[in-house]
Amino acid sequence: MTVAGAIAWGHGVLASDEFTECSKVCEILLAHAADRDWSWISLNGQRALSTSELEEFRSLVFACATGTPVQYLVRATEFFGLELKVERGVYVPKWETELLVEEALSFLEAPQLSDLTWGMSRTRAVIHEVGTGSGAIAISIARHAPATAISASDVSAFALSLAQANARLNGVAGRIRFCRGDLQDPLAGVPDLVVANLPYIREGEISDLPTNVRVQPRSSLVSRCSGLGHINRLLENLTIKPGGRVMLEIGFDQASGVQSICSGNPKLSYERTVKDLAGLDRVAVIAAL
């Protein structure tokens, strides 16, 4: 079977509502099976695959069809233009979360906000990321905002080891301090910016998620109190400089709930909600008073 034939076969196996980019998924899996770069696929459509390459590809496609995330199968993903290692047992960063990074970088780059929050006498903005997982958010910020001191936490030792490996892979290992613990508890200093993609799926909604999401760590997905339990705990015990910002990824219908949490805290003011490319509420921006 040729490369093009294998892609067509895989497309037929994966074609469903859960796989909106079947051809791209098949190309990624075949490149991995053949131990080649993804660009090799488009240049070698008529090349015959070896028996071992074809068997490996078929195995990957069937695993993907039964719900294993493609990122787990190839043990890698791309986020904000960076290559990251991904392993089973650690949440796979999704493209929507890139909006959170964009908002963080915009805040850090705004001159008027820089003067307000960390002042001209300081050269490094202090950032806390809580629930770092693979390290995607902290690493992306570190790569694009060098004048920052970043600390990132997670309760999972395995996730932290993966995040540290990703920091080394992307040349920012010396720029991020990874700490094991809950939320901000293990993080030192008073930050100018807190960013987080915490669990926000309601407990009763887990069964409605696509299979390739449900197989990811439940602790990275589900939160109590209508999905706002983790966010509520973070904001209740928040450490941040006056004038700083908290940026949180949220569910499409959770902005009002986060606003309610902020309204009960005299040190916080809900600033705005940022929508993603699908027009859904995605990031909550909160000002520290």
Rank of each mutant, 00 (worst) to 15 (best):
I206D: 01
V246W: 02
E78L: 11
A136P: 07
C225N: 14
N166M: 15
I150Y: 07
Q71I: 04
V101N: 01
A8K: 12
E87T: 15
A15S: 14
R233P: 02
R75V: 01
M1W: 06
N237M: 00
I41A: 03
E129G: 08
E55N: 15
E249G: 01
L193P: 00
T77K: 05
L160S: 02
W40S: 05
V246R: 03
S220W: 02
D253L: 10
L100K: 09
G5C: 09
M247P: 04
I41E: 01
S269K: 10
G181F: 13
I150Q: 09
A284Q: 03
S50Q: 06
G171H: 06
G89E: 14
S263T: 12
I137Q: 05
V25G: 02
P217Q: 08
G264F: 06
T20H: 11
G181Q: 10
V92L: 10
C225W: 10
L280E: 08
G12D: 13
G257P: 02
R168Y: 15
A163S: 07
A159H: 06
R75W: 01
V86P: 00
K275G: 01
V194D: 02
A163E: 02
G12T: 11
G119C: 06
Y270V: 10
A34G: 02
L82N: 04
A188Y: 01
G131L: 04
P69L: 11
A278W: 07
F79L: 09
G131A: 05
Y270F: 15
D281L: 11
D35C: 15
T20K: 13
I206S: 02
V70C: 15
R233H: 12
A15I: 13
E21C: 12
L234D: 03
W118C: 06
A288Y: 00
S223F: 11
E27Y: 00
E78Q: 09
S219D: 00
A163H: 03
A63K: 14
L14Q: 14
Q216Y: 09
T239K: 08
L169N: 06
A188V: 04
C22Q: 08
D35G: 12
M247T: 09
V92S: 10
L14K: 13
S223C: 11
T20A: 15
W38Q: 07
A142I: 15
G119D: 08
D154L: 10
Q259P: 00
R214F: 00
I141H: 02
R124W: 04
A167I: 10
V215R: 13
K275H: 07
S220L: 04
T68R: 14
D154I: 13
A8I: 14
F57M: 12
L100F: 08
A142N: 09
A4D: 15
